[in-house]
């Protein structure tokens, strides 16, 4: 069913949020993704994915403290919700099951 499954990019964003713990806001997520995946990630795309994840209830967000750096604008920090965590675990276990099904002999032949 659409909506419950995670897209590839959505999964990456969720993982990044989890990895960044308390520092997960849009620009940081964007940088982290660029560093680790090696592709150039556009801020606009990250924004719309975060927005979508929040609509699905996989993440929640709150505004942080105002700082001087961003022209006085506050950052919006993201955190995984329970559903978000469940979705990640679910995705991982699904993959692990599939990996386990590949016989090691067949794998080497390829």
């Amino acid at each position: 069913m659409k909506g419950t499954n995670l897209g590839e990019f959505e999964e990456l964003v969720l993982l990044t949020i989890a990895a960044l713990i308390n520092e997960a806001y849009s620009v940081a997520i964007c940088d982290e993704l660029s560093d680790h995946t090696g592709r150039s990630v556009k801020l606009g795309v990250v924004h719309s994915v975060l927005n979508r994840l929040e609509e699905k209830g996989l993440v929640k967000s709150e505004l942080g403290e105002a700082t001087k750096a961003r022209g006085g604008k506050r950052k919006r920090f993201y955190q995984l919700t329970m559903q978000g965590k469940a979705a990640l675990v679910n995705a991982k276990s699904m993959r692990d099951q599939l990996w386990a099904r590949i016989p090691s002999l067949a794998w080497k032949k390829m």
Binding site: L43, H47, R70, K73
Partner: peptide, 15 residues
């Protein structure tokens, strides 16, 4: 609702 965060991001990128 989105305005503050979004302009903040734009400012950060700008700098």
């Amino acid at each position: 609702g989105l305005l503050e965060d979004l302009t903040g991001d734009l400012n950060e990128c700008f700098e």
